[in-house]
Design a protein around this nucleic acid. Sequence first.
DNA 1: CTGAAAGCGCTTACAG
DNA 2: CTGAAAGCGCTTACAG
Lengths: 339, 339
Amino acid sequence: MRKPSIKDIAAAAGVSHSTVSRALRNSPLLKPETIQRIQKIAQEKGYTASAVARSLVTRRTHTIGVVVTTIADPFVAEVVSGIEQTANDHGYSVFLANSNAEPERELKVAQSFAERRVDGIIVTSSRVGALYTPMLSSLQIPIVLVNNQHPGQFVHSVMIANFEASRDATRHLIQLGHTRIAYLGDRFGYQSDTERFAGYREALDCAGIPFLPELVSHGDGKPEGGYEAMKKLLTLPEPPTAVFCYNDMSALGALKAIREAGLRVPRDISLVGFDDLFVAEYCEPPLTTVRQPRRHMGRLAAEILLKLIQGAGAEELIRVPGELILRESTAPPRSPESR
Amino acid sequence: MRKPSIKDIAAAAGVSHSTVSRALRNSPLLKPETIQRIQKIAQEKGYTASAVARSLVTRRTHTIGVVVTTIADPFVAEVVSGIEQTANDHGYSVFLANSNAEPERELKVAQSFAERRVDGIIVTSSRVGALYTPMLSSLQIPIVLVNNQHPGQFVHSVMIANFEASRDATRHLIQLGHTRIAYLGDRFGYQSDTERFAGYREALDCAGIPFLPELVSHGDGKPEGGYEAMKKLLTLPEPPTAVFCYNDMSALGALKAIREAGLRVPRDISLVGFDDLFVAEYCEPPLTTVRQPRRHMGRLAAEILLKLIQGAGAEELIRVPGELILRESTAPPRSPESR
DNA sequence: CTGAAAGCGCTTACAG
DNA sequence: CTGAAAGCGCTTACAG
């Protein structure tokens, strides 16, 4: 049996389909009894209004598109969970699409969102490729970015306060007594790397600790790159006593390199990460790191987007503070004589 | 400026909108020149066909709904990534919805998928609540389950081969020389726990090792529960020399309990997990575990669903083999005299 | 090869 | 308070 349409309900109720439409939306134009009666019939027939037909006339799909590099990234998944939450709370459904950072896929995604007439788009943790940017903006619908890596022409975004968080994380190491503090960064020149590096420098400056270029090493944001970058730092005549890592993934690789060198964290080297991934709590030792309130950031992004969709103004850039989570990978440096 | 419709293109090209529709779909009825000409104009005007209008007439949305407990679960996220991949490859978009295991939210999700006229639904790693089940099936559209925890009336599902994988994992411990092997399970009575336990028993039976009920302890599938369950096993007069855990999360908790008891893995106790979460590779020691090909399972589920949508038949139950990943949490038991 | 017409399932001015 | 009509943007038999 076909799904009942508004006409079937109208026939069953002996009214016009306009009246059924009004009854289902609780129009104040109808008298309560009529509404009751029609709704009851609709329910009995298992009627569910078609959002597609409604969208066609209202020109609103109550749908948002979320593009991510890959939902398999736990960071991204939590942001999306926040987005979906508030979207759903407001009656919006979310289309999820993975770009896999492949240009042709990004194209397909933008195309499909355009065809589906999504009311707005959120892009999470993307580099937002050169090609991609104009394509998305040509869609002429509101777009909000979360932790975007290139300051493009997009207006609205939610970002972690990289500078402040990194400064605080580095300051934590300084307060423990470290002075030879390395920065293990990301080599791709992302905005977040630049900002985190700036926060690191700021903390050194404030403490009057000279910045030493040899204490900067670059990974790829993944364990493998962190591993290599750390190995390089370990070959220094005088290796650092503490390392502030661009992210937890890099820190994981650094941890491995330190372990393989026969050294221990935090006894020989203190380590701080960034992100507070699940694994940070369960590696050995548990990692001191900066927590990004991912779900919250997703919620904020969705709230901004919904405002924009409603035609209201919204904050252009929200900086969300990170939180330094102290665990067991940081400790005072060993005094020179105890080495 | 409003988005151009098929009529705007028709006017610009001096043809009827029917012809435009045909041109855009490369109908063999039109002569190639016409198609070319119209497509060029459409492109210039930045025309994008409306999927919502099309869906209304074709009665197909080329959309699938994916319900998950929470996308923040890395396991789920990878399955979804596989689903999205193949859906997208076939021109389908995916609606993502989190149920958070809350009945009222499950209801809303089912309702919204019904309104949006999704062509099919995939439910991942859900308990599929009592209420939920009839609701979903009343939708009268194809549904595929991935690792569902209750054998319901749903016909199509993709599941990991729990029995075989657990048997092999336990056999690995036996081959290392263990005989006092514990099973650290999940107390909620999920199908996967039952099956994994059965695999464990099978391995013991095959090896002629008597099953000892005191070597079974139940957690909650999370680190906290694994921690408590392991502590109980450690109070035994003669604790196990190896533990097969229901999943990696439980193993993480067990690891902590063992460490706190002043014992070491694998020297004092060998540990095997299940799932091969990312963290399994980076905890200390790296965890021997059963890998579930999550992305692959997502892809399979999507393929089955697409077949069903096309009206074709499909396998009712696919069992996907797990893969034992040997890392550093398992070793032969210490000989009694060396204790 | 192309157009006019009908229709998908709704919403919403416009009448009455 | 309710209905008839128009229309959202497409697809697709039916004619010609």
